[in-house]
Write a protein that binds this DNA or RNA. Sequence first.
DNA 1: TCTGGGGTCCTAGGACCC
DNA 2: TCTGGGGTCCTAGGACCC
Length: 369
Amino acid sequence: MDAFYASVELLRYPELAGQPVVIGGGRRHQPVLLADGTRRFAKLADYAGRGVITTATYAARDYGVHSGMGLMKAAALAPQAVLLPTDFDEYRAYSRRFKAAVAEVAPVIEDRGIDEIYIDLSDLPGAQDSVGHDPFGGVRALGLEIKNNVRRATGLSCSIGITPNKLLAKIASELDKPDGLTLLARDDLPLRIWPLPVRRINGIGPKAGAKLKALGIDTIGQLAAHDPQDLVRHFGPNIGRWLHDAACGIDDRPVVVFSEPVSMSRETTFDRDLHARRDRAELGRVFTELAEAVAQDLQRKGYAGRTIGIKLRFEDFKTVTRDLTLADAINDAKAIRHAAGLCLKRVDLSRRIRLLGVRAGNLARSPAR
DNA sequence: TCTGGGGTCCTAGGACCC
DNA sequence: TCTGGGGTCCTAGGACCC
């Protein structure tokens, strides 16, 4: 989906169309409905806190702001941009709608979070057809049908890449954003994929990107031309081989239509860093709330966790985790809080705490309450 | 003006067992 | 006193993604 959260907000506030809009932060900057029927929106410049951008409209991105950027930093770049609070319930509702609209056309879908999916078109009637002189006319028609269905159901645009595998589809879907439809065959690799920077490969993040750059590898083509043995030397056998395969467009991962969850967690960043002793009461209260939230999530979805863990981030941004595996899976708030408390005892709390989280892993199905 | 929240997967060392 | 090879489970941290 294109700029998903921002696009959903534009449906609600159409007067913001074309303007730089940024989504992020807490509840404190709701739009206010004025007596004359217009709305007053918060500006990025008004923000104070530790939030980050979850999504920015394309107009806002022109100012150099992007998702993940701290709102205070973004305010320096685009002070007049409109700031809206994140409304996950609304985005989840639109997420369900767009996925249902796709499923009407192509039901083999892999969920990749709230605004992304992989679709397997290979067994769909017409997928292999050519239309006129276009050998890929069949899949192009399918792509257009999916886009139309999504727009009809949600009013939103999406971008689609149709290729022989998931790796290439992900890259192709981003080549023509927004409202794109990009078709790519194996033969297109040298011309369309190899000139792109290695970071476009899903799975090459900041660390691997920097390491490749240090080796003189900037583009996917350079990665494909590089000696695989040398990549194995620098990245280990698994990542080394994967890097080279990916650059050559090789990817045989199937579209996975269902997978069991592995863990469920809740975490929160405090408005100010808390001290284990001086802020003991507040810390304890939040800790209990997080345990209760995890318990609720588990119960609502019908799971219990045998491993309970905590996460702390300190004022210097160093992050530690501790976990504890029990004899039996639990999803009761009191039991989770107790196990998490045992974990907390194993952490040195001399630094001030920025973030606290509670996690349940090793999940097993449990009757929903 | 530093850096959210919810996830997955991988690695590596140690305990423990046969 | 010094020593095998294979396996599983647990814990902690880190890279990466949406």
